[in-house]
Design a binder for these strands. Structure first.
Lengths: 216, 216
DNA sequence: CGGATAACTGACCCGTGAGTTAGTAATTCC
DNA sequence: GGAATTACTAACTCACGGGTCAGTTATCCG
């Protein structure tokens, strides 16, 4: 027999939205937008399906909320830091890559990236927001830092945007690898170690060849 | 009035399967598995929906056929080439990366990669096949070539698998970029140029530092 | 305590799309 | 030519899941 008190449910107007969004992030990341069932999201949030509609008018709006919630805090910081940075380029790289690895290790970044690439065609406006406000900005920030380092003679000549992609791509792909292949038995990548080794390799490849000089 | 002859449709038992698979690849790549409609695939293949079922018993089987058809030829060659290679490591890299860029430029590789990452949770057996037979093998082949180059003193010490990821990740991510962000106005990457620059940068970062030596 | 409020639920509706089937028309073979 | 074969289609069924609503129950306030 169940306990006589302890009501069947509680009113928790404040806590619901974030719990729902968290549950939705999990399910969307696992199944993709179309295959995700609102009943599953509701169940994982400990709530009935109808309750979702008290807070989000449609499935698409819930999806948008997930994106807005989970995306912005992750990358905005990184981009801003790279943008404002003025010290030696190699110090930036040796800070940035492990920081990115740390962000990627915990948390939901893998699921997010999957959602971005998987649903971009079905949500062109979202793809545009993702690019204009976040991914594009982050890439531009790193490219900008590289261009400045080139102007100071720290970094070899070459397309800064291609250099930037070369810097961050291994980490991104390692995250996708974790989401995609590790669950079926593939050996994982150690993100921290990868970030350290890749930082050294990339610097080694990018830095101009004066033994010791430049920088303020 | 329509022409009096020219029948409404023709019997083309041989040609149908490949046409259907090609149409399915397009639609699956655009929409993802769950959101893809068989009617759309049928229409694009110039055939009725029911005709699909003459050749493929279910939507999942059609998806599997698409994967089998489109995936294997793309990567098997690359992996084999890297595996068998015995010359100087830098020559391998300068050959492999542009070749990969060429494969990625034309054709459907972007759509495939999207399908892999997007549907891996919904098709664990496929994810396993993808990894065990293709992606994992390709990565192992490149890692192996790097390990051999390290043994010969051509390449610096370090985790070969991480080096391999660093080599191919920028190209993969550029392909995903094209699929995801270019359609909404983001500036594209020139894959050929990216491959060339990245090959030089990566070699610069990876090669051991004896001015001229080693190699058979 | 008891009425009012609103957060929440269970059971429902209905559009959509995977899969089926009865029949039609292109082809083949005599 | 015409019967037999079968590639193909139009029209259907039915399960599934997004979205709704009437009613229930926790909570607030007097």
């Amino acid at each position: 027999m169940p306990a006589i008190d302890s009501p069947r449910w509680r009113r928790r107007k404040e806590a619901r939205p974030s719990e729902i969004v968290a549950a939705a992030l999990e399910v969307f990341a696992e199944r993709g937008f179309a295959a995700a069932r609102l009943e599953d999201i509701a169940a994982r949030a400990g709530v009935s399906k109808a309750a979702l509609y008290l807070y989000f008018p449609t499935k698409q709006d819930l999806f948008r909320a997930v994106v807005a919630d989970a995306f912005a805090p992750n990358l905005a910081g990184v981009a801003g830091a790279a943008d404002a940075y003025e010290g030696r380029f190699e110090d930036l790289v040796r800070t940035l890559l492990p920081a990115l690895a740390a962000v990627a290790s915990r948390g939901s970044m893998g699921g997010l990236v999957k959602m971005v690439v998987g649903e971009s065609r079905n949500f062109p406006e979202l793809a545009k927001v993702w690019h204009d406000d976040l991914v594009g900005k982050a890439l531009a920030a790193v490219s900008g830092a590289i261009a400045r380092a080139q102007a100071k003679g720290e970094v070899k000549a070459g397309d800064p945007r291609a250099y930037a992609l070369g810097l961050i791509a291994p980490l991104m792909l390692a995250v996708l690898w974790r989401e995609t292949f590790t669950p079926v038995g593939a050996p994982p990548f150690d993100l921290e170690a990868l970030a350290r080794q890749h930082a050294e390799t990339a610097l080694n490849g990018m830095l101009a060849e004066m033994p010791e000089a430049a920088a303020a």
